[in-house]
Nucleic acid binder design. Structure first.
Lengths: 340, 340
DNA sequence: TAAATTCTTTGAACCGGTTTAAAGCCGTGT
DNA sequence: ACACGGCTTTAAACCGGTTCAAAGAATTTA
């Protein structure tokens, strides 16, 4: 604990200091400290004791440079996105367990997604996990040509990039089934605007409506509460709509807010659903019926996919699709009887 | 753009490859690429062209090892804490502007705060920013003895650690003034349980009550919605309380939820306030009167404090206290008239 | 034209570890 | 006494840059 080298500004002890103190070569010290078999028990003990007394900590930079492998996984993250945060915690856990270290590249300030990825590669991460990347595939491809990459949470069609995502299509289907089973017949979808993820969910909504022989109605929404609320303006007063499937939780929350300000009760008059099961949806004052994407599972699979490439030498592409689970909460109920 | 070295698995080009190709020494290449004055314009141009053609990127690990300075700032972060996320984005921006790079150490999985800090030091960060650290001062002290450290968001009494925080005391005072000016006389405080921050706010509440010659009433709460709600159980039915100042937004939200489930309207019958101005408080369905801690400002000051030590050689401790601003929203109003 | 000055470039040391071939040491079998 | 095989330990190369004193080339000055 209490290291010898007391005061600030002191040079940190190196492996050479230990070697001199112990009267052995620095190579031997390195072997002892990395737990390699070879050094005798007696020597090992002596070296470890000295290392401890000197308060030695291995210089990671030097170690990374010298070693072939870095055992570093790079992850892109938008810090202000709470869903990313939750995912990161799970990824961290999985990486820990596998003996890998995480380098977080935050997409913020003057650094866009591409520059963040370059930064992670510069740090010599052995693999990259891209959380819900927004960058276009053709821009991404040349940059990650050398690095095993896993895309988490969305479709990405690049020959060498693994994908781990949830089954949005099934999720949307389950939401539709739930609403239909409650008795809803006029169900609208407020979409997530342009973007790959939104496209997929919109398509899934349409398919579900068709399956139930209902008329689809898609309203242009977006990724934020505000855009969700605005989408309702396109909806006439007497549209007969009794339920709205929103693109995600934020969109849904915007919708609920707008409806209640217009004195339309939720779920009394109109039921509303989200997607993501974010911490907001779980909140008792919001209490949204939504779809859980099993972030812990996604995190585990993503880390596993990366490590398979690194440690097991897998080279063929994999796409892992996890189930999306309907979570029924208080924002959905049977439609008002007079609506029939 | 399109680098020569095409396929995967290829060795990345090094500075030596460029030197050979250009027929110069590697030292010269290094000077060119780091923009040092010295190399002739002609040589520089040639080297840069070759570097580009080869798709060269400098190996950060090697550069860090060789250079004296790393220009790395280490930041601890709890990824699932949305407030941390927002703060990180601002810190990132400030660091960018000052030419420093951020290394994020996420406190998650099997890694507690101390191990995260050690990790950041192992990466040779030149300074640390600890966001709302929870670790005890005496455990922290020996670890950070060598590294300039800034504590963000709470009091921390260590001789060599700078502190950047908001003026909780003034903030609580402003909340109290606001409630009193609305006509409230019976104002309770649901605290944040044990902990340095909670202690400070409790003290500030007491002082404000004294200033207004009102009777203080402190209820034991905590850091989560649930603990906030539970605190109300200690409150008798006819306590006469017309306003509650909660420790922070989460606590407040728990309180609001509980009150409304008991058919007590907010703010009609009881006004409730939070602290933090988190994204939740801003939400229109929650719409909480609260206190903004100016996270962007804290971020800027914290980065500035670290850089002052690194670049300007400051050694004396600094404690920067920023104003905390009352944000009035819909969860407070005049008390019901019959309460008088 | 030689000397002095300035501009470029080189070569080697260095950062702090890891890795491995080879050397040293020891006990054993003959 | 000598060769042999199994531990330990060493010495040196290496990772990929940075840095700087000194050498070399080009230019100016005397």
């Amino acid at each position: 604990m209490a290291a010898e080298r007391a005061s600030r500004g002191q040079r940190r002890p190196t492996i050479l200091d230990i070697a001199n103190e112990a009267g052995v070569s620095k190579g031997l010290v390195s072997m002892v400290l990395s737990g390699a078999s070879g050094p005798s028990a007696a020597t090992a003990e002596r070296v470890v004791a000295i290392a401890e007394r000197l308060g030695y900590r291995t210089n990671r930079t030097a170690a990374l440079l010298a070693r072939r492998r870095t055992r570093l996984l790079g992850v892109t993250i938008i810090p202000s996105n709470i869903y990313h945060g939750e995912l990161i915690e799970d990824i961290q856990e999985a990486a820990d367990a596998a003996g890998y270290e995480l380098v977080l590249g935050s997409i913020a300030g003057s650094r866009d997604e591409l520059r963040t990825i370059e930064m992670l590669i510069d740090f010599r991460c052995e693999a990259l996990l891209l959380v819900g990347p927004t960058v276009a595939a053709h821009k991404l491809a040349p940059i990650i040509a050398d690095v095993p990459t896993v895309c988490v949470g969305r479709v990405l069609d690049l020959p060498d990039v693994d994908v781990v995502r949830s089954d949005d299509s099934k999720g949307m289907g389950a939401v539709a089934d739930h609403l239909v089973s409650l008795g809803h017949r006029r169900i609208a979808h407020v979409d997530g605007g342009p973007g790959v993820i939104a496209d997929g969910r919109r398509r899934a909504y349409r398919a579900a409506m068709k399956r139930h022989q209902l008329e689809p109605l898609v309203l242009r929404g977006g990724l934020t509460e505000r855009l969700g609320a605005l989408a309702l303006d396109a909806l006439g007063e007497s549209s007969g709509i009794t339920a709205i499937m929103a693109f995600n939780d934020r969109t849904a929350i915007g919708i609920v807010d707008r409806l209640e300000r217009q004195n339309v009760t939720v779920p009394g008059e109109i039921s509303v659903t989200g997607f993501d099961d974010s911490i907001l949806a779980r909140h008792s004052r919001i209490d949204l019926t939504t779809v859980n994407q099993a972030p812990e599972e996604q995190a585990r699979m993503a880390v596993a996919a990366a490590i398979e490439r690194l440690d097991a030498g897998r080279t063929e592409r994999r796409e892992i699709v996890l189930p999306a689970n309907l979570i029924v909460r208080g924002s959905t109920s049977s439609p008002p009887s007079q609506a029939l």
